[in-house]
Amino acid sequence: MLIRSPQDWELPESAATEEKFYHLSKRRDFLKSIGVAGVALAARDLLGATAGFPAKENPAYPASALKPTSYDLITSYNNFYEFGTDKDEPKPNSKKWKPEPWTVEIAGLIRNPVKIDVNDLIGKLGGIEQRVYRMRCVEAWSMVIPWDGFPLSKLVAFADPKPEAKFLKLTTILDPKNLPGQQENILRWPYVEGLHLDEANNELAFIATGIYGKPIPNQNGAPLRLVTPWKYGFKGVKSIAKIEFVAEQPMNTWRVMAPREYGFLANVNPTVDHPRWSQASERIIGGGGLLGARQKTLMFNGYEKQVAALYQGVDLKKFY
């Protein structure tokens, strides 16, 4: 007999996503009802990565004591400087952008370099699944987000890295015409983030293509966005155009901007403060009422069991 002991990231049934969020547009419901469906059609719909929806919840990641933030807040409170530096700007400013068709380049020290349509990639990696993760921003606020997507480790296996490959370098699309923030000299464009290869292969590292069972909205990083829930949110590079396997640690954008404030690892750590504010606790987005709510920040954002082994012997005060 198989007795499953619940994992600490598991969520209770009560936190399961409401059915209304699983439903796509009425148009797609209609198309499905008359038997027109599938990747080819979906790819020509409104968003870049529409393959695989509705996603099945990964049975290893069912619901837990977490309370998902509302879809409305997740999609209206965004840091996406390519569409404006205020949190309310990315939603309206990205409304007209059409990230489709979308080709992602997988390159570098690998045996299988490709430029591939995002929906074809999702198909090759075996579709998508849903996972509910905490998300902690370096600005000391947090959300709980039901992501849809695929484990990054599947993409790594697909790319088939050579032994020299030690890091992943992930880059946002450079398109100043459609991403107006890139016309201004606020950050060094395009946005770059990186991971150690063993971090990318950790079971938690995830590439999101959706939120709440719907294709990921533009303001959240359509069509592909990195999710590393044990790290600060700025690691989650959005609208990924290129994934490169490299030998040297890439220089990530915020570290270029302010190396004393933002590191490469960027692990959530309540004992290492940002130079301007404490990281010991965090505001809960949608915490309720006028005063809102705050909670203690957890080591590795509550994912210590999954990732602590990656950093044994690493001085996390020095490598923040």
Binding site: S76, Y77, D86, I285, L291
Partner: peptide, 10 residues
């Protein structure tokens, strides 16, 4: 405004 209601006190 949703982005204000995310954390009104902020």
């Amino acid at each position: 405004n949703s982005s204000v209601l995310a954390d009104p006190l902020k």
